[in-house]
């Protein structure tokens, strides 16, 4: 006969299950992410990796075949939100408080965009996130760097985010 799992073990299991849910369903549940064709490639305890496919409709500068910064910001906001969810480890409504993006170099048409976001501090009501974006396998030459703060809802009912 096995001993019943401790509450800590149960909540760790629930957090793992929630991260699996983020990996498999996040994009379907956030409609705009699905519309842009984003995917979640990896979810860790405080870090996620998301991908945005390179599509002609995401071009911002036709003359130089550059992707629009606005769509990069959408990827960053989505990945940052997902990272906060991964760190919390259970469904909770969150909202972006602010977001700042530095565009380090232009994103050229032809390769998918990847964003890795890390929730590096989770306080009682605020989560702090940093993120980096690159193209294809060029992980060492980032296109954008971002920092964001999210506010966590105090509502006990699950009124939205997953």
């Amino acid at each position: 006969m096995t001993a019943p799992a401790s509450p800590t073990a149960r909540s760790a299991d629930a957090a793992t299950a929630f991260r699996t849910l983020l990996l498999q369903r996040y994009v379907d549940l956030v409609r705009h992410c699905a519309a842009l064709g984003m995917t979640v490639d990896a979810v860790d305890t405080e870090r996620v990796r998301m991908r945005l496919p390179c599509r002609p409709e995401f071009i911002g500068d036709t003359e130089h075949a550059l992707l629009h910064n606005g769509v990069i910001t959408s990827l960053i906001d989505s990945a940052c939100g997902c990272a906060v969810g991964a760190r919390i480890g259970k469904p909770q409504r969150i909202a972006t408080l602010d977001l700042r993006v530095d565009y380090l170099r232009a994103a050229t048409f032809g390769a998918d965009l990847l964003c890795e976001a890390e929730c590096y501090r989770l306080a009682r009501s605020i989560a702090f996130v940093r993120a980096q974006v690159w193209q294809g396998s060029a992980e060492t030459t980032p296109i954008a760097h971002a920092v964001a703060a999210f506010i966590l809802s105090t509502s006990t009912t699950n009124s939205g985010f997953l």
């Binding site: 956030v30 705009h32 606005g70 989505s78 972006t96």
Partner: peptide, 22 residues
């Protein structure tokens, strides 16, 4: 397709940001 949170519902933060950048 601009929705982020379907239960509220609310627009995706990236939509507001992308619109502002445009």
């Amino acid at each position: 397709t601009l929705i982020g949170n379907y239960k509220l519902p609310a627009l995706h933060g990236g939509v507001t940001a992308g619109f502002a950048e445009n």
